[in-house]
Simulated assay, not measured.
Amino acid sequence: MSSGASKFSRAGRRRLDPGAAAAGERRGTDLDYAFVANEEMAFAARKAFDRGGGEKVKIVTVNGTDEALAALKDGRFAATVSNSAKDTGVLAVTNAISLLRGGRRRRRSSPRRPA
């Protein structure tokens, strides 16, 4: 096994470094999921898993773009997390103004769901 290619999560399920998946390593076919740091790599990892017999590996990624939401809807991804700098900035300014006026802070809005 390549250095750092697989690790165990707290739940004991194996996960694969997306770099190892993208390199075409076939040892990842018994994995439950792969967390991939961005959607461009996630699409490459999905293709690598599919080519290597890992069609059942669930892909979880970050950014929540329209392409990822489509992949979520059609089953290529199991989850994607929206990580919008704009939304985070708006929430920070809204909370700062509210706190300065003696109000309460607002929590992040509900996640976007595919249509």
Rank of each mutant, 00 (worst) to 15 (best):
Phe8Gln: 08
Val60Leu: 14
Ser110Ala: 15
Val62Tyr: 15
Gly103Trp: 13
Asp87Thr: 04
Ala22Thr: 07
Val57Ser: 06
Arg101Gly: 13
Phe77Thr: 03
Asp30Met: 07
Glu39Leu: 06
Ala92Arg: 06
Glu39Lys: 10
Gly12Thr: 02
Gly75Cys: 06
Lys58Ile: 01
Thr94Gly: 10
Thr94Asp: 15
Phe8Gly: 08
Ser109Arg: 15
Asp32Lys: 06
Asn83Arg: 14
Ala22Tyr: 03
Gly75Tyr: 08
Val62Trp: 12
Arg10Trp: 09
Ala37His: 01
Ala44Arg: 05
Asn38Leu: 06
Leu69Trp: 12
Lys58Leu: 09
Leu91Arg: 10
Glu25Ala: 10
Val90Glu: 10
Ser9Lys: 07
Lys56Asp: 15
Gly53Met: 13
Gly64Asn: 06
Gly103Asn: 11
Thr80Asn: 11
Leu69Gln: 10
Gly89Tyr: 10
Ala92Asn: 11
Gly52Ala: 13
Gly102Leu: 07
Gly53Asp: 09
Ser9Tyr: 01
Gly64Thr: 04
Gly54Glu: 08
Val60Asn: 12
Ala78Asn: 00
Phe49Leu: 12
Ala115Cys: 11
Gly52Arg: 03
Ala48Asp: 10
Gly103Tyr: 10
Val36Gly: 14
Ala92Met: 10
Asn38Val: 11
Ala23Ser: 09
Arg112Gln: 03
Ala85Lys: 09
Lys7Trp: 05
Pro18Tyr: 09
Ser109His: 06
Ser110Tyr: 01
Ala42Asp: 09
Arg112His: 05
Gly19Ser: 01
Pro18Arg: 05
Leu69Tyr: 15
Ala5Glu: 01
Gly102Trp: 12
Ser2Phe: 03
Asp30Arg: 03
Phe49Asp: 15
Lys7Pro: 00
Arg15Glu: 12
Arg10Tyr: 04
Gly102Asn: 13
Leu31Pro: 02
Gly54Trp: 04
Leu72Val: 00
Glu39Ile: 06
Asp74Arg: 04
Leu69Asp: 05
Ala22Ile: 12
Asp74Glu: 15
Gly24Arg: 10
Ile59Arg: 07
Arg76Asp: 14
Arg104Val: 08
Thr65Cys: 00
Val90Thr: 07
Ala71Pro: 00
Lys86Pro: 02
Arg26Trp: 01
Phe77Ile: 02
Ala11Pro: 00
Arg13Thr: 09
Glu40Val: 11
Leu91Gly: 00
Leu72Ser: 04
Asp32Leu: 04
Arg15Trp: 04
Leu31Tyr: 10
Gly24Val: 09
Arg107Ile: 03
Ser2Leu: 02
Met1Asn: 08
Glu25Asn: 05
Arg14Met: 05
Leu100Asn: 03
Glu40Leu: 09
Val81Trp: 08
Pro18Asp: 06
Val36Glu: 05
Gly103Pro: 01
Gly102Asp: 08
Ile59Thr: 04
Ser82Trp: 00
Ala85Pro: 04
Arg76Tyr: 05
Leu69Met: 11
Ala45Met: 07
Asp17Lys: 00
Thr80Arg: 08
Asn83Phe: 09
Thr61Val: 03
Arg107Glu: 14
Arg104Trp: 03
Pro111Thr: 06
Met41Val: 08
Gly89Lys: 11
Leu100Glu: 02
Ser9Asn: 13
Arg27Trp: 05
Glu25Pro: 00
Glu67Arg: 07
Ala92Thr: 04
Val62Gln: 08
Glu55Leu: 15
Leu91Trp: 12
Arg51Gly: 13
Asp66Glu: 14
Glu25Ser: 14
Val90Gly: 06
